[in-house]
């Protein structure tokens, strides 16, 4: 009896779950859509002139105009390039120092207090010094981004290495793994989930600091678009740049998630949390 009843009970539940997911997505979009449509209507009906808060149609038009002249692409490319280089350097340094500090307790005792002290400094405070050291062009901007990326990656990697289960390492020892095999077959896979999280928070900070760097003086980049929009009184350009930041920030984060997903399928995680 039960065996025949079960598949019948599972079938509709499955399709309902698919529908439920669709509705959940829709629910998330509801608020911004209502606000956008409402504001558009308010401006169209002349309840507001929409000069300081441009309606969606004007923002889209500005976006399109910037894209048509190729200006948008140029600024996006410059900004993305800065983040890429800064992120790369920060990740390399953070990974190496973090792994070292996690692996050897002597190194950790030596450098971790200093690292924590440096981490407590708001990174923007470095800007004047970086400008003196590396000039006002790319050098100081990339250094600032790299510093912003370094700390979350350092902390994440160190914590991950420290938290590797001693019992699992013992399994490796019982199977007589060499040092290199131990790293490849036990430590790396064990550390990977934490590492991905560290990379994602590092990347988030990278995007934050590229804005700071570009606001402080740049002739190109999305941050420049922001400043330019403020100085020339073009709020639609500011919002367009913000939207561009949101889109590429999300896309780059998504790339990390997608690239790591095949290696993390084993993780016991709540369904759907991958979308975050």
């Amino acid at each position: 009896m039960t065996s025949t009843a079960e598949p019948a009970a599972v079938q509709p539940r499955k399709s309902k779950a698919g529908l439920g997911r669709f509705v959940r997505w829709g629910l998330g979009l509801l608020l911004p859509l209502v606000v956008a449509v409402g504001w558009e209507a308010a401006v169209r009906l002349h309840w507001s002139d929409g000069r300081l808060v441009p309606p969606p149609s004007v923002i889209v038009a500005t976006f399109m105009a910037l894209a048509k002249t190729g200006e948008l692409q140029r600024h996006v490319l410059v900004t993305t390039g800065r983040v890429a280089v800064g992120f790369g350097l920060g990740v390399i340094a953070g990974t190496m120092v973090g792994a070292l500090a996690g692996y050897s307790s002597l190194t950790r005792r030596l450098i971790d207090p200093t690292m924590q002290a440096l981490r407590a400094i708001p990174s923007i405070a470095w800007v004047p010094l970086f400008v003196l050291w590396f000039g006002i062009f790319e050098g100081s901007k990339i250094t600032l981004i790299a510093v912003g990326v370094f700390f979350p990656v350092y902390l994440g990697v160190m914590g991950a290495v420290l938290s590797v289960d001693r019992k699992i390492v013992e399994v490796g020892r019982a199977f007589r793994l060499s040092g290199f095999q131990m790293v490849r077959r036990i430590l790396l896979p064990a550390v990977l989930p934490h590492y991905v999280i560290a990379l994602r928070s590092g990347l988030g900070l990278g995007w934050m600091f590229v804005v700071a760097a570009e606001l402080l003086g740049a002739s190109e980049g999305l941050g420049y678009l922001l400043v330019d929009g403020q100085q020339l009184g073009k709020p639609s350009q500011i919002v367009a740049a913000i939207v561009a930041f949101a889109i590429i920030g999300k896309i780059t984060d998504w790339i990390i998630v997608l690239m790591s997903a095949p290696f993390l399928r084993w993780e016991d995680r709540a369904p759907g949390s991958m979308e975050a």
Partner: peptide, 19 residues
């Protein structure tokens, strides 16, 4: 040190979760 002729089973299964 651990030897290939000796195997061990622990109190917990200690399977590697990524395999």
């Amino acid at each position: 040190s651990p030897h290939e002729k000796i195997g061990i089973v622990f109190q917990e299964a200690r399977l590697l979760p990524w395999l």
